[in-house]
């Protein structure tokens, strides 16, 4: 079975005024369905660049990127938008909710850009997702009225609404205290166990410990790629049962 994500010799150069910044210098990586991968590395190692490419927000200078069956490395802007709305879910460090929307409306946003009408059914799905992340009693709240942890839960629900192949999380706990971080990581681990593929950028080892696999980057290369035999979430789930 081919991986959800297959990247082959991915190169990304940024042309600045006089110099060329070589952010990725030939990265190859395969992520299988149901994997939970933590992407680590110091700043400037290229992990953010890699995440942007994986998120179809940018196009590589060279190399190939297969998301599922499709090679997205050569796609036009509009096609990339379509890929994002159909196959990807994003969780950001600063939550990035739309301030003027309620919880349910925020969860709905990715569906706005799939070319179909919103129905009672999609509405119901959004409410279910809000309940799944534990915000069933705050459906009509606006982001300003929620705590950081709650906002990140809304963002996770939003990342799930289009039933994506892949969830990309960019330091999802970076703005949260350790207790709330734990809650968020529990939620992600639970989703992973339900079959969701997750790629998460982090620089904290105890957050990376929740993943099944840890990839370390340095200077635009993959430095190490090791499985994590005892990810945190498993133990937590086992102890809970």
């Amino acid at each position: 079975m081919p991986g959800v994500v297959r990247i082959l010799d991915l190169v990304k150069n940024y042309e600045l005024e006089a110099v060329t910044v070589r952010a990725l210098r030939g990265v190859s990586l395969t992520v299988d369905e149901g994997d939970f991968l933590a992407l680590m590395g110091p700043s400037g190692s290229g992990k953010s660049t890699l995440l942007n490419l994986l998120g179809c927000l940018d196009r590589p200078t060279s190399g190939n990127y297969y998301l599922g069956e499709e090679d997205v490395s050569e796609m036009e802007d509009d096609q990339l938008s379509e890929i994002r709305s159909k196959y990807l879910g994003f969780v950001f460090q600063s939550y990035n909710l739309l301030a003027q929307y309620t919880v349910v409306e925020n969860i709905e946003v990715p569906l706005l850009y799939q070319d179909r009408r919103l129905s009672e059914e999609t509405q119901r799905r959004c409410v279910e997702l809000a309940e799944l992340v534990g915000l069933g009693d705050r459906l009509d709240h606006r982001p300003m009225q929620l705590s950081g942890g709650q906002q990140q839960r809304v963002a996770i629900a939003r990342a799930l609404v289009n039933d994506p192949h892949l969830i990309l999380a960019d330091e999802p706990t970076g703005n949260l205290d350790s207790r709330t971080s734990d809650e968020i990581m529990h939620l992600l681990a639970k989703l992973n166990q339900a079959g969701k593929t997750i790629i998460m950028v982090t620089h904290e080892t105890d957050i990376a410990a929740w993943a099944r696999r840890v990839v370390r980057m340095r200077d635009g290369h993959i430095e190490s790629d090791e499985p994590n035999p005892h990810p945190n979430g498993h133990i937590a789930l086992v102890t809970r049962h």
Partner: peptide
């Protein structure tokens, strides 16, 4: 601008 970025990331096309 940020809202535009969020919407684009979540799948909005330029014409949206």
């Amino acid at each position: 601008t940020r809202e535009i970025g969020i919407r684009r990331a979540l799948g909005a096309k330029r014409r949206d």
